[in-house]
Design a protein around this nucleic acid. Structure first.
Lengths: 172, 172
DNA sequence: GTCTATAGAATGATAGAC
DNA sequence: GTCTATCATTCTATAGAC
């Protein structure tokens, strides 16, 4: 999975073949097929590994009575994970093949629904949704943008968190 | 190119074969190869067609002495184009294969450099760059996010412009 | 300018030996 | 659990006829 992670982050999912993953590991394709029945399963396993880091904080956010505090909890962790996995984020979020695959995977959909509900509450007016979409995009893209490629993880995290807090305040 | 546009937007570049494009057009692959020497050329031609809509407003922004007004000009047009081509935006911006291809295409690089200079001026401190990356991401993703899939172009444009203006003001 | 036909390589996936 | 060998299919790209 680490080999797949590196190749997916580098070339994207569709442009990465099982042969490439096998070569990177020094094994054959057949060995990979013993662990994963299809290429899709590798993508799903990788996605679940990424989202696992949000599990506990999402539980905590759902138990938190104050919405702003719940949002703050989630925001910090989401930024942490996004910065740590800068290069994979866009691949998993924006590759149409991956998006479709994950959309057909119920556990993933349920998780995302929980995440947005914890962030948005039950408000669902147009302005709130556009704002949420923008914040989500701002994080996803900010961590992988060429403009910030040379900024250290720590500094990027701090800047992002500060900017996001100001963006969130715009809506309170 | 319209057929390629639709397929790229739907499946991404790597997952779209020349055969699919040919089938969608009702011609054979050989007919496409007569027009474009390689698949990459199709991607570049499509990208140039998208960016052509920014050409005149970028000229105008560079001639504009007031930076905030230049930014406002660019912002409006960028949002217009992004909303109009909702589905293609992420494919061209985030597919690692496309990103690499365009990075090796000097005319594209020069155009992007001009665009960022017109937006950022010569300030290049960390905070300004992170902020610019976030704004760029906010637009790119906001137009294609599932949360906003059912919002009309006109309403989405208005909301995005309003949100972006408030984000920009945070930095003035 | 589009066609048929094909070359040559790569793809995802499987069978069966060890 | 990994291997070799192979399947059917698909891919990009080209040659040559019309």
């Amino acid at each position: 999975m680490d080999a797949a992670y590196r190749l997916f982050a580098d070339k994207g999912v569709s442009a990465t073949s099982l042969q490439m993953i096998a070569d990177a590991m020094g094994v054959t394709k057949a060995a990979i097929y013993y662990q994963f029945k299809t290429k899709d399963e590798i993508v799903i396993a990788l996605t679940e590994r990424q989202l696992a880091g949000l599990e506990d904080v999402l539980d905590a956010a759902e138990a938190e009575p104050s919405r702003p505090r719940a949002r703050e909890l989630l925001l910090e962790r989401v930024i942490d994970i996004a910065v740590a996995d800068r290069r994979l984020v866009s691949v998993l979020q924006f590759d149409p093949v991956v998006v479709r695959l994950l959309a057909e995977h119920p556990p993933f959909q349920q998780f995302i629904t929980r995440l947005y509900r914890a962030m948005l509450g039950d408000e669902a007016d147009t302005a709130a949704r556009v704002h949420a979409a923008m914040m989500s995009g701002a994080i996803s893209v900010a961590v992988m943008h060429p403009l910030v490629a040379d900024i250290s993880d720590e500094e990027l995290k701090a800047q992002l968190l500060a900017s996001m807090r100001r963006m969130v305040e715009l809506r309170e």
